[in-house]
Nucleic acid binder design. Sequence first.
DNA 1: GTTTTTACTTGATTTATGAAAGGATAGAAT
DNA 2: ATTCTATCCTTTCATAAATCAAGTAAAAAC
Lengths: 139, 139
Amino acid sequence: MLDHTDLKIIQELTHNSRMTMKELGDKVHLTGQAAATRVAKLEEQGVVEGYTVKVNKKKIGYAVHAFITVMTQSTSHHPYLNFVETQTKHVENHYKISGEGCYMLECRFVSHEQLDQFLVDLNRHANYKLSIVINHQSK
Amino acid sequence: MLDHTDLKIIQELTHNSRMTMKELGDKVHLTGQAAATRVAKLEEQGVVEGYTVKVNKKKIGYAVHAFITVMTQSTSHHPYLNFVETQTKHVENHYKISGEGCYMLECRFVSHEQLDQFLVDLNRHANYKLSIVINHQSK
DNA sequence: GTTTTTACTTGATTTATGAAAGGATAGAAT
DNA sequence: ATTCTATCCTTTCATAAATCAAGTAAAAAC
């Protein structure tokens, strides 16, 4: 289904999704047209879900990066889930997890004050453990 | 420094970083050239750090997604940090955190067996708590 | 062994990009 | 008020890339 060339294409686009199909073709030893056809196929298959940009969040004012492990005490998760729905401004990722806690939130905030307010609001629906990111490296 | 148009540009590129500068210009009411100039400036400023692709990891064989909170018992973190360096294949993100634990790893594995082996290796340097992702939604 | 499918290339046309030049606007100095 | 300057934008045009339509070749199906 996916051959070596497809994986190479994914790898190249991961490093720079704005490269031209001609450039991509050169990297994987295909013409630009052939590369474009492969990419279109990867999109159809749902392997490639979209293209995005890596933004330096600090530089756009979001200095605080936090992971919040959520322990819902009530039998129904709905109040909590509804709350999360209202917080799209801060919630970057929402994971349902096994292990300690039921959910984990990856969030961004302008300030600790904003984080504090979020935690106050969150605590009306669930208990939590907070981990603030001091430093980060991605591969 | 960053005006409303810049933020709109970042938003648009976040949703689709492969759109042409002409399209982007249309979205933010500029010519393609003006949009391209702004994007170039955002790159120079380090606000835009790069362009990447959203890949469905399951479809390329990485079925297991886990967060691992790491508690290093030894006074020196170096053995652990050196270990992490060797695991770039699995470690997608490495966070230094405050809160419970010293570090948090976001990892991908083909199988639970592979995860198990990773944990065995990790445990030679540090203790950990495991959270496996059951479901995920990003904004 | 022929047909069909798949993956690629080539060539022509449309479209986007990048560079250079010019125009509008706002703020500061005179 | 006027001029200077800087910034940001648009327009124009040459170049490069993307797209579309055939056409080819090799592998797979029958």
